[in-house]
């Protein structure tokens, strides 16, 4: 059995940053790259299944440029069996819809039995890729999963979704399925130093959309759900600064507390 884990190399933007010259994104000099936080949890879910059952292969896949390879190395270091990176410069402006289409094409080639994606990414937070991928594949899906009960090969899985205000929904879902995994479902492991070293020399399979049978019009700008016209800084720094002496500041805090909490 095979579990496909789509991951993203997410961008962490520093506090004082500048925009790119074309104004459509943050200047990459102000960005730190890291495996998307949610993907730590989806990968961990896959690895725990692998460890408690025989014969499970975990395949990590990402759509991203050279810089995204580190995300896959992190997955390999933690115990993923294989890693696939899909890229073509045409994907430079890809939005979740296009990424999902590429991931679905990877799934078609890999024929996994389960797809575990992150609920969202820590940089852009679309909360869309996993569900869009399932739709391209025609698979059942459930989003924001915080508990999973699944035996490999079973026709159904039982999952819990985390809803607003801490409420949970327990449901049964037909398998194979795409689940988007929420933080807190487990405690993600850290790669051992030995794992990190070994992962450096493991192969990462590199593919282009073309290799996957996708045409230019499937992945180019016109296929995207949206295009960023420009990015800008929020009008004023988000925080409203409470001025005054400590007594004045405390008075205002107290008023806010009473307003928000009532009473």
């Amino acid at each position: 059995m095979k579990i496909l884990v789509p991951v993203k190399q997410a961008a962490l933007v520093e506090d004082d940053f500048e925009l790119r010259d074309d104004g459509r994104d943050v200047d990459p000099d102000f960005v730190d790259l890291q495996l998307n936080e949610w993907d730590d949890y989806s990968l961990e879910t896959a690895l725990q299944l692998k460890e408690s059952h025989d014969g499970i292969e975990v395949v990590a896949v990402t759509v991203g440029d050279d810089d995204a390879e580190d995300a896959l190395r992190t997955c390999l270091a933690k115990g993923a069996d294989r890693a696939i990176r899909v890229w073509d410069d045409e994907l430079g402006d890809a939005d979740p819809v296009v990424i999902a289409r590429v991931l679905a094409a990877v799934a078609q080639r890999e024929t996994p039995d389960l797809v575990l994606a992150g609920t969202q990414s820590s940089d852009l937070g679309f909360s869309a890729t996993g569900v869009a991928m399932a739709t391209f594949m025609g698979w059942p899906h459930a989003a924001v999963v915080v508990a999973l009960d699944y035996s490999p090969g079973a026709a159904t899985a039982t999952v819990e979704r985390e809803l607003e205000g801490g409420l949970r929904q327990r449901l049964e879902i037909d398998c194979p399925a795409v689940l988007t995994i929420q933080l807190g479902i487990n405690t993600p492991r850290y790669a051992s130093l030995r794992g990190i070293k070994q992962a450096r020399s493991l192969p990462v399979e590199e593919l282009t959309p073309e290799d996957l049978g996708l045409e230019a019009q499937d992945v180019g700008e016109q296929a995207c759900g949206a295009r960023v016209r420009k990015m800008y800084l929020p009008e004023k720094g988000q925080a409203e600064m409470i001025e005054g002496t400590p007594a004045q500041q405390a008075e205002r805090i107290a008023a806010i507390v009473k307003e928000v909490m009532g009473g």
Binding site: V13, F17, V26, R229, K230, Y232, L233, P234
Partner: peptide, 9 residues
């Protein structure tokens, strides 16, 4: 975008 550090149109 990026934890509300930027807005995207």
């Amino acid at each position: 975008a990026y934890g509300e550090r930027a807005h995207a149109l």
